[in-house]
Design a protein around this nucleic acid. Structure first.
Length: 417
RNA sequence: CGGGAACUGGCUCAAUUGGCUAGAGCACUCGGUUUGGGACCGAGAGGUUCCGGGUUCGAGUCCCGGGUUCCCGACCA
């Protein structure tokens, strides 16, 4: 992508009353634009990151046998009344149609997926099953805060599983937990596995929490095995569920995922049952499992930055290479431009994702500053200096050192950054 | 939803005790110069000072009501 044609504008200064790092850097870098408190546009650069995160989640969900679906954001009031949550869920957005009926904007999808399960599930032979979606959710938060960390409209991957027994549910729950650990590691935000309350869903649940100084949660981490406990259910007398020790360290963390054993809670509301081997009707055992990709994006920025900007982990960076041409107006100007152009073409042909800063009339310093805040892993500079040695300069965003690479070796080098 | 703070051009901020035609930097347009860390010179465009009332000869500034945003708390399926 040529930067001169990209829907992108960085700014030197962040909005004065934004405090959170992710909001400041993502807005300054031209990744997102705030429309209202807790509601953002994902600009091209930000959308690329979001889609990479979602694709990692998608890959891992597919790998554990879950089927992708897409359920509606607009949901019938009756379904929410059936579970009692039309009145009890305080963050539910209720929409009044001009034609006189009401509906809900989905904050989660038990009210859709459970009746949906009735269309597919009749027999124990139909079980187990798992479906997931990656979708925009709506929650009428009393207080949206901290950029992408708590929005009123946000992206969520929600997975629902259906089982013939609690035991089978428990087994799948563990499979999902392992899948989640892989996901967060791939995103560059390895997460703690945390015992927590289940809220209105279940007595207990497990959260995935990323240790970060600005975290909104407090967790206690077992020094023996690293299993953690959320402050909300922690007591001094508690022995670790996993290793039995009673030695913890306290830390701040941000929640990026949460998994629940719903069991028959929602099956009962919608009479989702199956016939077992003996011909008896039993409620389907359900689990639900959530990850917020947009929130994850915020947490990644909170964790991966320096005083100059964002430092994207390679796997979710919007581009792998930021190619910068410092063509200037000198005698070498056109040669520099044409060399950079050729490198850009070659990189694209070999499948490297490259953002090419081909802008003329922009100073070197401004281009470097932009490159730093955008945070692409590898920066490649073509200038009169580098061409004098038939080379390009490579600098990794994580490093302060740069390296001259002969143009003849550049492509191979960049295919392996 | 309780408490605190803020709101002036696209962005960041000025504006004395209530006083003249509301200023500057960034960004933008034109001309020139410049090209390895957010260059420089000149010219230009850009304003319902969040909204509505009130006090006053006079309100960006004071008072009342409302809105929005950020922060703390509550909440967090």
């Amino acid at each position: 992508m040529k930067q001169s044609q990209y829907f992108l504008k960085t700014t030197k200064t962040a909005s004065k009353d934004e405090v959170s790092i992710n909001a400041r850097l993502l807005e300054q870098g031209g990744f997102i634009n705030k429309e209202m408190a807790g509601v953002y546009t994902f600009l091209p650069l930000g959308l690329r990151v979001l889609q990479k995160i979602e694709n990692i989640v998608r890959e891992e969900m597919n790998a554990i046998g879950a089927n992708e679906v897409l359920m509606p954001a607009m949901q019938p009031k009756e379904n929410w009344q059936a579970t009692g949550r039309w009145d009890s869920l305080d963050v539910l957005f209720k929409v009044e149609s001009q034609h006189g009926y009401q509906l809900a904007l989905g904050p989660t999808h038990e009210e859709i997926v459970t009746p949906l399960g009735k269309k597919i599930i009749n027999s124990y032979r139909d079980l187990p099953l798992a479906v997931y979606q990656i979708q925009t959710k709506f929650r009428d938060e009393a207080r949206a805060k901290s950029g992408l960390m708590r929005g009123r409209e946000f992206r969520m991957k929600d997975l629902y599983s259906f089982h013939a027994s609690e035991e089978d549910l428990g087994n799948y729950y563990k499979i999902v937990a392992e899948s989640y650990k892989r996901i967060f590691t791939r995103l560059g935000i390895p997460a703690l596995y945390v015992e927590a309350s289940g809220g209105s869903f279940s007595k207990f649940s497990h959260e995935f929490q990323v240790e970060t100084v600005n975290g909104e949660d407090t967790v206690f981490v077992c020094k023996g095995c690293n299993l953690a406990v959320n402050k909300e259910i922690f007591t001094d007398e508690k022995h670790c569920t996993d290793c039995g020790k009673k030695d913890y360290r306290e830390t701040k963390a941000s929640e990026v995922g949460n998994i629940f054993e719903l069991k028959n809670k929602y099956s009962d509301s919608f009479e989702l049952e199956f016939t077992d081997e003996e011909g008896n009707r039993n409620p389907v055992m359900m689990g639900c499992y959530g990850i917020g990709p947009s929130r994850c994006m915020g947490v990644v920025v909170e964790e991966h930055n320096d005083d100059k900007g964002i430092i994207w982990p390679k796997e979710i960076a919007p581009f792998q290479v930021h190619l910068i041409s410092l063509s200037g107006n000198g005698p070498e100007s056109s040669k520099i431009s044409s060399t950079a152009e050729q490198i850009y073409t070659d990189l694209q042909a070999s499948g490297v994702e490259v953002l090419y800063d081909d802008r003329e009339e922009v100073s070197a310093g401004a281009k470097f500053a932009d490159s730093d805040i955008i945070g692409i892993p590898a920066r490649v500079v073509i200038s009169a200096k580098t061409l004098a040695q038939s080379s390009a300069e490579i600098k990794l965003r994580t490093s302060s050192e740069s390296e001259l690479i002969p143009l003849t070796a550049l492509l191979e080098k960049l295919n392996n950054v």
